[in-house]
């Protein structure tokens, strides 16, 4: 019957779509959660190590470089200017950006002494996985913390952290664009500023 063939044909297309769609989600919820958990364990190991702050910031930077997709975060923070940046210039900027993140967020480590962060779940969103967690900080009501993890870089990496709705990617985008505007669009000057900032 013609009707059946049509249904069969539509079914085939649907199956094809599903087939094409699956490889993009090779990273599953479990792996994404494990990635977040592992990076948290390393962060807490540094916090509890009691080493001097300057060394801690270096260690945080290394963890960030290992578990986050620094390339896409740095690119996204640069905004429209990322389209015109030369590869060598971008590499230098990315390196400076990574150090800046390690210092800026590392400086807050004291708030995390005696705290814990529990991974509570994960769900697919768009092309990535959102891992949810709750941060229990001393003397403060629990905070929702969400990690966006993707394997678009070739490996599972997180590219955004959202704490009680406050989005790290959006906030660094605003900050870097303000720094770049101060330098009238000069990326080399921005890079030099980032090396000192945070």
């Amino acid at each position: 019957m013609p009707n059946d063939t049509r249904r069969g044909f539509l079914g085939l297309i649907a199956a094809g779509c599903a087939f094409v769609a699956t490889p993009a989600l090779a990273l599953d919820e479990k792996q994404a959660s494990a990635l977040v958990q592992k990076s948290l364990d390393e962060v807490y190991a540094v916090i509890n190590s009691g080493q001097p702050p300057a060394q801690m910031y270096k260690a945080f930077e290394a963890i960030f470089a290992r578990y986050a997709d620094v390339d896409i975060i740095a690119r996204s923070a640069l905004g429209p200017a990322a389209r015109r940046v030369k590869p060598a210039e971008f590499a230098a900027y990315k390196h400076a950006f990574q150090g800046y993140i390690g210092r800026k967020y590392g400086k807050r480590f004291r708030e995390f002494i005696g705290s814990k962060i529990e991974v509570t779940g994960a769900r697919p969103v768009k092309s990535f996985i959102a891992v949810t967690s709750i941060a229990y900080l001393k003397g403060r009501s629990p905070m929702e913390m969400e990690w966006h993890v993707s394997d678009k870089s070739g490996q599972g990496r997180y590219f955004n952290i959202i704490i009680e709705g406050v989005n790290m990617l959006a906030s660094e985008r605003a900050e870097v664009s303000a720094m770049l505007a101060k330098r009238k669009g000069d990326i080399a000057a921005l890079t030099a500023d980032l090396q000192k900032a945070g």
């Binding site: 996204s76 969103v125 092309s127 990535f128 966006h148 955004n160 709705g165 406050v166 989005n167 906030s171």
Partner: peptide, 23 residues
């Protein structure tokens, strides 16, 4: 930015997730 994001989160009015890979 921070205040608006936090307030919208409180009120359940936050916007779409950012997907930097799609940009």
């Amino acid at each position: 930015l921070i205040w608006l994001q936090h307030r919208r989160h409180e009120l359940g009015e936050q916007g779409d997730e950012i997907d930097p890979y799609a940009e």
